[in-house]
Design a protein around this nucleic acid. Sequence first.
DNA 1: TATGAATGAGTGTTCATTCAT
DNA 2: AATGAATGAACACTCATTCAT
Lengths: 205, 205, 205, 205
Amino acid sequence: MLRDGGQSLREHLIAAAARLLDRRGAAGLTVRDVAREAGVADGVLYNHFADKEELLAHALHAHIRAVEAALAGAVPQPGEGSLAGNLRVWLDRSLALHAAILPALAGLTTQPKLLARLAELPALPGGDPGVRAEFADYLRAEQRLGRVAPTADPRAAATLLVGVCHDLVLSRLLDPAGGPPQPDPELVAALVDTLLRGVAPAGPG
Amino acid sequence: MLRDGGQSLREHLIAAAARLLDRRGAAGLTVRDVAREAGVADGVLYNHFADKEELLAHALHAHIRAVEAALAGAVPQPGEGSLAGNLRVWLDRSLALHAAILPALAGLTTQPKLLARLAELPALPGGDPGVRAEFADYLRAEQRLGRVAPTADPRAAATLLVGVCHDLVLSRLLDPAGGPPQPDPELVAALVDTLLRGVAPAGPG
Amino acid sequence: MLRDGGQSLREHLIAAAARLLDRRGAAGLTVRDVAREAGVADGVLYNHFADKEELLAHALHAHIRAVEAALAGAVPQPGEGSLAGNLRVWLDRSLALHAAILPALAGLTTQPKLLARLAELPALPGGDPGVRAEFADYLRAEQRLGRVAPTADPRAAATLLVGVCHDLVLSRLLDPAGGPPQPDPELVAALVDTLLRGVAPAGPG
Amino acid sequence: MLRDGGQSLREHLIAAAARLLDRRGAAGLTVRDVAREAGVADGVLYNHFADKEELLAHALHAHIRAVEAALAGAVPQPGEGSLAGNLRVWLDRSLALHAAILPALAGLTTQPKLLARLAELPALPGGDPGVRAEFADYLRAEQRLGRVAPTADPRAAATLLVGVCHDLVLSRLLDPAGGPPQPDPELVAALVDTLLRGVAPAGPG
DNA sequence: TATGAATGAGTGTTCATTCAT
DNA sequence: AATGAATGAACACTCATTCAT
């Protein structure tokens, strides 16, 4: 991809790296790949970044911000709609986010240099911790409105929501056959229901 | 480690690779590392495996089986103990399993050759799908005993259980600071409670 | 270091390069280092010099002239003081000169391009050949005054003087431990004595 | 040059590197150059040496030993022949040694890693310090025989002898025109004479 | 069958030099 | 003239894989 003149080469490199991160993840990504994707010379990145990891950290950052920006506005408001419907929206939103982010993130677990560089960057406004916190905040608001049990633990519920996304996305990543891009809608509905009512039989609880 | 004569060199190589997989994960693992760990010559693996990936796929397989074997017997029996206590045991068990397996698995998402080799192997008796299925079976048994709501979806509950483990383990892997090896016990209790009762307010069910 | 307007950029670059040559020698010196030291843009040197080597040749030239200028006035006058004392002064002077010049020069033996550029420059008024010639001239003057044997060969004596400096400075450069900056004073005294009287036993001459 | 089967590849690599060291010095010598000279693959040296510097240190060691071996037997015996003749032989010998060694050594002054590796190797039986020590020993023996003044300082005389070699060889190295391979015989004779008698006028000693 | 030396393409990185502005 | 971003060949070094023994 050739560069359009409207952005600095630094941003152009970050964008090219972010594209590759999205497509192929962080593992096995070479600086030559990035240079080719950006349509520039091999060594050019060292005029703008200390090393490969600094570029990739910025690219990952940008990728996550881009994914979040694309999902903006989809957040249900407390008190509006049904609780089940809202949970479903949160789950869909979190799934979309993780489907776009986890492939790049999974290959990072074994790249300490990259993780360290990432930690140097300003905290992501959202990202993985972002959905978790936003969803917990939403639940607390619903709690105040009486639509969520006062004994419920928003942090635990948020962990279940995010965890399910990790699971569904990772399973697909590890499946060489690929699998369907969208999870089974029936499973999603059952997940929402389980989050809502739990598995215990109805009782004086 | 020297080879004891009781096993084939093939098995010996798989065991050595599995040890390294457990210690350091799949990324950055060289065939020289494996050969040194096994105490054999560099090129010997090509007499027993088509390539590095085939060996690692077998090693991963063996590693997962070993972790499962170490956890055998910890499975709560339906109808015995409290449901909450049993869920807690299942969660601990699943966490231990994923803590031992995910580090090796996470680095795999970007190694298609390895994933393909893994798919050629006989399906894992347990592994990630294993816990999921076993826990779902357990819930169905409890359902038959009336200790779990007949409307509960065992598959969804199992996905939540496994997902939470992915989340907790991955978060630690991605945290450059490391973080505590054990998750917060309060969070674990709240997770079990949420799985049991959900977040919806108590109502006519 | 910012440029003062009083000198051409060309001279400014030469001065900056000469400073680095003095500090770090010719090896491992990049054009970026020079540009940064001069406080100018990377490519500016190519407006004033054909290539890196031409700049460095000029810088070396300037460095040597600067070292010589700093030593000016220390030259013993023929007929004044003792011959031994004067030889000692010459040796000290030559040592100081070589200590300042050889580190930059030693790395040059393997840079043919730089040597060729250096040869294009006007012969150094002093430099290494400078001390040699000046000392030989001094000896010839002392010879005319009868304080040096008429059979002595000033050129040979000058070569011994300069050679000893090469040896002492090079040995220190090649010693990874570093070694003392000043040579052993007893050795220096013995060197002067040997230059004066030789090793042959006193005899009928 | 292809390898003859009679030596290990390790020795073959050392020999190839020593040839290049002799021809072109240590500066600007790449691992590819060595591999090409040895007629082997690029990366092969890392099967035998920790890094480039370890190989070059061994090569330099071998080169110096080879030069010394070629000069063995040329050492004058104390008490035999004339002192002047013997000094001349020592000077020739030292010159030959330095002419063969200094080109490789001069480029080393700026390679700290290589110098450190060299320091790890067993001390050279001879080498530069070798001639110096041997010549000083020779002078002491002549002193005991009364053919050298009891007041002479063998260490200083040896430093002058070695220093002159450094000077003559370095001057040629730094002369891009090359210059004659052999120094002016008249100068050599005058050097010997100066070492013998000094520059002071004949007197009561 | 086991060895381990040899291979060579590929890695991240540097840096003298160019050239549009 | 001066800039400094871009270039791309070169560097030291790694490692999966091969093959003569």
